[in-house]
Design a protein around this nucleic acid. Sequence first.
DNA 1: GCCATTCAGGACATATTTTGTCCAAAGATA
DNA 2: TATCTTTGGACAAAATATGTCCTGAATGGC
Lengths: 107, 107
Amino acid sequence: MAIVKKHTTFGEQLRQLRETAGMTLREVAANIEIDPSLLAKIERNQRQPTKHLIRNIADFFEVNEKELLEEFLSDQIAYKILDEEADLNILKVAEEKVAYIKTLRNE
Amino acid sequence: MAIVKKHTTFGEQLRQLRETAGMTLREVAANIEIDPSLLAKIERNQRQPTKHLIRNIADFFEVNEKELLEEFLSDQIAYKILDEEADLNILKVAEEKVAYIKTLRNE
DNA sequence: GCCATTCAGGACATATTTTGTCCAAAGATA
DNA sequence: TATCTTTGGACAAAATATGTCCTGAATGGC
């Protein structure tokens, strides 16, 4: 996919896509059918994109939708940890819980 | 802390605390000041406890509040991954993003 | 069998959170 | 200065989550 730097935020990656394309907020916003102000907020991680919007962004910039969605999800998890000031080891615990819950559901 | 099995869900751990204490839903609910039906739902992971409630639970069962909170947070992350059918590697990405965002904030 | 009690789960009103837009102001560019 | 872009606050609208009430199934004692 065309996203360049890894491990930056979803918003930063989106901004990079836009700037690489040499477009303004207004132009991109018009194409993906949202208010430019909302796009600006998403780029600064002040608003979260809906799934529908992620799809439109992926289509517009011709990047892989699933990868973009996973960028967004990993952002959400990262921000949750920061917001809650949680220890990073909860990620490991979460991973084990995923496995556990999956076994529960296969019964 | 008194929680026994690891890597089960928050609700199951809560239920285990209650059953270990030999108490009914009604009794515990009365003590932590919620409707028994809500407590039952939390035990079955159909409702999420508020932080205030987590504090009350920790106080009541005399378990470490911070640990209980982290159990809850890891649950939330696990359920998010399951709900979104996301790849587990997003946890690794999230971890790197946490580090990245922290460096951003220290500037 | 019958009564009392516990637990599960649906429906629903209320509360809380999030989203998206509008508008004004700040920053850039020329 | 004039124009265009970006930032950011305020706020209505939409979406989501919470907590309670109520009904019914299940269990256990008598």
